[in-house]
Write a protein that binds this DNA or RNA. Structure first.
Lengths: 131, 131
DNA sequence: GAAGGCTATATGCATGTGCATTAGATGTCC
DNA sequence: GGACATCTAATGCACATGCATATAGCCTTC
């Protein structure tokens, strides 16, 4: 039974930490760079990979968003000129997504904010562990 | 710089874990008991405290929801007959929230599902730590 | 090579969220 | 005691999300 209580405790910690940090990130990225958290994280995944362009599929694979949410996040990024979508010639169902110059710049700026917020609000692992 | 990388790593782990677990909880609670995650967590906070009734304020204090989101969650719970709202006589700006019999029963049932899902999907602290 | 099944992305729709504001109650200062 | 700041909760609004479905391309089987 104690393990049950510990489980719940871990869950509440996760819930609280996540909402706190995500909320702060959301506000800071929006105010400072006009990016939602999902948009930033999408850009981040896109740029992390060496390859300049990735298919929606690949992007979705290491993201937390549903397929539809990702589709719309990319649509918003494209509308803002931060990303470019191109048909994949080999398989025309696929879509390649690539960060534009503007996207790369915006990401570089936003990354500073992202890190600063994490440094301030992301609880250390120790804290998480000990509660 | 390594600490920077570790920070990001922790964040991504948090992001992924949260979305995985929250998603599973949401579906399981909705399918099995007609409760959203927020509704369950609200009920849970309400019943955890020994006192049968709590003010919105107090509830809000240890929850992750915004004031407006909590207000609406309680409204939905009331509409479902799981909770009852009553004016606070001492300070008529305040509102007392109390779980009804039905609410207590529903919570007891849902709690089983909640725990089961956590046991299955909530990564152990060790895993979180080691990545 | 036509049919049917599968895969990759986009979109209609219902819903939950946060922010800003509103409505109502309390308290304070003169 | 009247004006004004403060506090509590509810609500209008814009928007991101997930689910189900639509659309379009590919692939296998006959």
């Amino acid at each position: 039974m104690t393990s049950q209580a510990a489980l719940i405790d871990r869950w509440r910690t996760l819930l609280t930490s996540y909402n706190e940090v995500a909320g702060q990130l959301e506000r800071a990225l929006q105010d400072g760079h006009g990016l939602s958290l999902s948009e930033f994280e999408t850009l981040d995944r896109l740029i992390d990979a060496d390859c300049e362009k990735r298919r929606m599929q690949d992007l979705a694979a290491d993201m937390y968003l549903s397929q539809s949410a990702l589709s719309r996040a990319v649509a918003r990024l494209e509308k803002s000129g931060l990303v470019h979508r191109a048909l994949c010639e080999a398989d025309r169902r696929g879509v390649f997504v690539r960060a534009t110059e503007a996207g790369i710049r915006r990401h570089a700026e936003a990354r500073q904010t992202h890190r600063a917020v994490l440094a301030q609000y992301l609880p250390a692992t120790d804290q998480v562990r000990k509660r």
